[in-house]
Nucleic acid binder design. Sequence first.
DNA 1: GTGAAAGCGCTAACAC
DNA 2: GTGTTAGCGCTTTCAC
Lengths: 345, 345
Amino acid sequence: MTIKSATIYDVAKYAKTSTATVSRVLSNSGYSVSEELKQRVLEAAKKLKYTPNLVGRQLKTKEITDIAVIIPNISNPFYPSIVLGVEDVAREKGYNVLLCDSFRNPKLESEYLRSMLQKQVKGVIISSISQNNKTLIKLVESGLNIVAFDQDVTFPCNKITFDYKKGGFLAVEHLIKLGHRKIAFVGAPLNRPSRKSLYAGYLKALKKYGISLNEEFVLLNELEKEIHNEIYEYKNGIELAKRLMQLKEKPTAIFAINDLTAIGVIQGLKTYGVKVPQDISVVGFDNIFISEMVEPPLTTIEQPKYEMGRLAANLLIESLSNKKNKNLEISLKPTLIIRKSTHEL
Amino acid sequence: MTIKSATIYDVAKYAKTSTATVSRVLSNSGYSVSEELKQRVLEAAKKLKYTPNLVGRQLKTKEITDIAVIIPNISNPFYPSIVLGVEDVAREKGYNVLLCDSFRNPKLESEYLRSMLQKQVKGVIISSISQNNKTLIKLVESGLNIVAFDQDVTFPCNKITFDYKKGGFLAVEHLIKLGHRKIAFVGAPLNRPSRKSLYAGYLKALKKYGISLNEEFVLLNELEKEIHNEIYEYKNGIELAKRLMQLKEKPTAIFAINDLTAIGVIQGLKTYGVKVPQDISVVGFDNIFISEMVEPPLTTIEQPKYEMGRLAANLLIESLSNKKNKNLEISLKPTLIIRKSTHEL
DNA sequence: GTGAAAGCGCTAACAC
DNA sequence: GTGTTAGCGCTTTCAC
């Protein structure tokens, strides 16, 4: 690195042979080289501390085995679970993954996208928080292979979708069946597809059970953008609990947009001496591992995160070689996990 | 990607000019090109959906702005905090970071190391879980720039170290001052420098306060390797609690090697009806954000994670241009965070 | 201000 | 079995 490193040419000179031969043995191409020469080359390479330069190789062969995954926030344990799945599959199939954290910043997301393309990655797996998908659309049009997950996207492509609406419905229905009718929906601005669907599910459940919407019970903090903080969702939840407590008429149950928010809400509620689930029931969303660690353990909606990661990676990698499976959509279903944060009214 | 994309050569042809000119305008080199030609080139590039090929560029210029960070387990929130710091600095200074998760597998770590080197990264920030640092030493010898953090390393290089021993001491001293004398040390095999130091701190505190070591109170699960699981440390903690409860003589306090383990221990204890901190006090290590979410909130030792990430990135980037600051070691100090999981005996 | 051409490190025809 | 050489996409002298 510092000292300019030996090239294949140096090795060839040292071993008194040609670069072709060196390349043949060093890239173990299976090409037949006499044992003696082979040894000489190997020795020379060792002697000169030769390290192959992938850049040269890639320029020549176009054999790039990188894929990128772009996520909005690695600090929410939801995403590491996804990444785990992606990496496992990638490794099995001989791909490397470049992980990009967009920090919920559409501009950064676009930059990453472009930069990955320039790096010649074979494809990208993305949870896009861009509202219009402009960059994404442009890049896909010019041939970029992608699979969208987590956040749905406004154009046809490979997708791993999750039935957020049903998830929201399940969560709220669970509360309703417990006897609750004053149910708050709590989270962040509905500026992502997943959140909109969650809200739609909330509405649907209300409607089905003949409960009219109380707008006061829909609390969406605007803070989001201001916080460059790993646990902003948690902080947001605490804040939201505060606002809930200021309502004249208080809900008896709360559906939070994700687990981290739900945990924050519970924490915030504690400050006011409100007990969960005795006084108020809370259900979260995602089933991150933390949700079973907190007190009370969180009732929530499971997303098969690791599996989603695996599916996404498989879908992407398959679509690379197999042009016909284009614009596939794989949809996953939510399950309700009942723990201790919800209670009969 | 799919359709072979336009090269600078195509653009030149389309704009009826030379590749040199195209390069000049497209890489905004500041090189003077007539306005008219410039426009033609820009148009051609747009028309042909030209995307620069970084591989070609890099091969020529050697201007690579990638750095790698290698960590053992992205699912432990400790590491995302570090990565956050690294990425912030990297972005400020125009570097990209390639994140590698070694999954606590020395072999994978070596592979990543080699692969990053071949990718020509400018340097790597690493928490190495290799016992002998063999690969690392070899690569550093042949010129790789690194900064080691989290886990100390057996040879001189840039380091961000943390005073684990003092951290362990502080944790145990806190327990002793609360009146505890039967204090367990609980975690995973002492096969990493950080853990050894933690244990040394435990021993030191015991000694200072005239408490003799009870070997039965040192519980190190061997499970680690078997589990390819995001929350293995938590599971490990639960398991460890079980083993503790089987002891004839039980400790009154527990020092766990990290927060996730501590949280697992508390969880495991609950199963036996043991209350923390009334029956047993527990202190963790790291101060990950989860530790304030659990019940009881965890008493723990703070590591300035985000700052460590920033420092590591700064140290690395500086050492790239400034050859004289070689083998710098920056040491950070622990602080005790007292919450609710510890209690007077 | 513009273009021809060399060359970064590597691989793969192609010749011998 | 081995070597020569062209060329991947790009930048950058060096002429003009």
